[in-house]
Each structure stands twice: as structure tokens, then as C-alpha cells.
Design a binder for these strands. Structure first.
Lengths: 158, 158
DNA sequence: GAATTCCCGACCCTGCTGGTAGGATATGAA
DNA sequence: TTCATATCCTACCAGCAGGGTCGGGAATTC
């Protein structure tokens, strides 16, 4: 049970954008360099954020991305939702029809199996923790830990 | 972001065991038939539960499995933990050394990156929701919905 | 028109998930 | 003592999604 790297990279991208002044756009390349992430892959990630209207973009020279809204009006459940496609602890939560994991022994109706009760609670726990965290909090946190004396070494781990 | 099928199958297995009287063991085959799951695969699943001392077993004819403790003393975080290995929303949470997803630009110390703050909260949300659910609850839920024809659709929405 | 940058689709590879196969060991019943 | 029932254990495998690359097209600015 693990979020994909799209979530990690996407959140970092959003934090990075949150640190910039919204007036001038930030290029993906700058972010890729700062975070040590592959540019081509970031393009795919940011596309999801754009489609979800979380960021806006401008093409051409001096183009780039910026937040579509102030960071304190962006809750992280929107972000993660956009990046992951859905926030579901189990396969049968994302699409009721394309159930591949057997959803208990009642396949006919939408009657809840015992496990569904559990996964629903888990889903609730995840969503709540995401909803109560704003991008602005993460940006603020990022700013605080940034000026600590350890030097920035963008290490690329295999 | 999804739990593996081991979690689903394992939880169902536990619920099934919880419905039995603990006196006589239940064979895997009976559970596999009742739930429509592959026996050989269930063996792998139940092995994890056994190693975590959540179930006990007896070999030979009329052997099988039973809960190591009363269902109301088993919280679901133990179960899921045993099945999934760890309850972590991000790769770098499970093993600090085997980071494959870049854990931000501070690899040296355990300083929290901005994303780590987020994933820590999410992890907390997941664990809390699992801790506050006991196996007995699921068993009870299972018993209730079992004898109801097709009436109740328990929508416990997030 | 050249540099920059977003945009888009196709492709590729590796590892893991989900599952199978086959046997060894223990136990009770006939 | 032999058979049927089970748990136990290890190895193996196929599909596929995750993570990433590549190449090119379309805006925009200088």
C-alpha cells in the first residue's frame, strides 16, 4: 500500500510553485533541476495538475507554470486526487464495474461486504488527513527547514 | 495507491475465522470454497498471519486455523500490518535506507522534507482508522448483512 | 528565425503482484 | 499401516502497471 511516485513528485512540484511569486511563471526545467527529477517525466505529472485546474501554464520563452489559486486555498486531497486519479484503498473502490479483486461473496448487488466497511474507514482517514492539510502549510514548512545549515545536494539515487 | 489483494483476502480470512467457534479449527479449503478464492494462494496469505501470531494452526486431518485471540482483542492495524508488511504511504517510509523514490533534496539527515510532513499525516490517518476497528466489529457486520436478503446498502461514506 | 518552453503520444523496461506447481510433513481414521 | 486430509514450504511464472525515455509539434518571445 503505497502512493505512486507521481504523488511524491507532484506534491513537490506544487510546493516548489508555492514558493514562487505567482506573477512570473516557473519553468519545469528549473523545478526538475532544483529537485533532481527527470524533466520528461515531470511533464506527465504536471499535465495531471493542469487538467485538474490546479496549475496554469504559459508556453514559449519565459513561459512556465504557476498555481491557479493561492496556496492556502488548495487542500492536498485535491492535489493527490489529481495525481493518483483516485484516493481508494482497494481496487473495487475506484470503479464498481471493473472489479478485479473479488469484492466478497456478494457479486450481484452493491451490498457492502465486511471488508468494505474497513476500507471505507481507511479511505475516510486518508481523505480527512489530506483535506486538513493545505499546500500553504507545506510551503511554510519547506521554507522553515530550508534555511537550516545543511547544504542542498540534489543527490540522484538509483 | 491501493492495498494489495493479500490485504483483502487476509481480512476476509480473518473475518471467516472470527465467525467460527474457536474450539474446532477451520480448514483453508473450507474458507477458499466459501469465499471463492484460490487455495494455494490463501496458503501464502495465511502464512503471514500465522507468523504474526494472529492465527494458530493444527496440521493433519481435521486440522485448520483459528484465531489466536478473541476477535475483540484484535485490531485491524495488526492484521493489515502483518499482511502488507508495513503501513506506509511512501516508499521511503518502509526502509529509510532503501530509498528508491527520491526523498527530497535532503538525503543525509532525517530532516523532514515538506512532503514527509504530508505523508506522515496520511500514515497517521490510516493507522488510526485501522486501530479503531476491531475484527469483532467486522465479524458482527458480516453476520448482520449475511442474513439480510438484499435490503440494506450500508453506505458509510467518507 | 532561433531559442525557449509547453504539449502530446508512443514506446520501453524492470519489478512486483497474483497465482500455480509440487512436494514434504503431520495427524486422524479405517 | 495405509490412506485421506491438512498444513507447510519453496520455487517458478506470466501479465502488467509504474517509472521513465524519446521525438516531435505548437506557441511565444527576443
Amino acid at each position: 500500500m503505497i502512493f505512486s511516485s507521481k504523488a511524491e513528485y507532484g506534491v513537490r512540484l506544487m510546493v516548489e510553485l508555492g514558493r514562487q511569486t505567482p506573477e512570473q511563471p516557473t519553468s519545469l526545467k528549473a523545478i526538475a533541476d532544483a529537485e533532481g527529477l527527470p524533466l520528461a517525466y515531470l511533464e506527465q505529472v504536471v499535465a495531471r495538475l493542469r487538467k485538474a485546474d490546479l496549475v496554469m501554464s504559459a508556453r514559449g520563452a519565459h513561459g512556465g507554470y504557476w498555481l491557479a489559486r493561492p496556496a492556502d486555498e488548495i487542500t492536498m486531497d485535491e492535489v493527490v486526487q489529481a495525481l493518483e486519479g483516485s484516493i481508494a484503498p482497494m481496487e473495487c473502490f475506484v470503479h464498481d464495474h471493473t472489479e478485479r479483486v473479488l469484492c466478497s461473496h456478494e457479486p450481484d448487488a452493491g451490498r457492502g461486504c465486511a471488508t468494505k466497511l474497513l476500507w471505507t474507514r481507511v479511505q475516510g482517514g486518508i481523505i480527512k488527513s489530506l483535506q486538513t492539510t493545505t499546500l500553504a502549510e507545506l510551503v511554510e514548512f519547506s521554507r522553515r527547514t530550508d534555511r537550516a545549515p545543511v547544504e542542498r545536494v540534489p543527490t540522484v539515487v538509483a
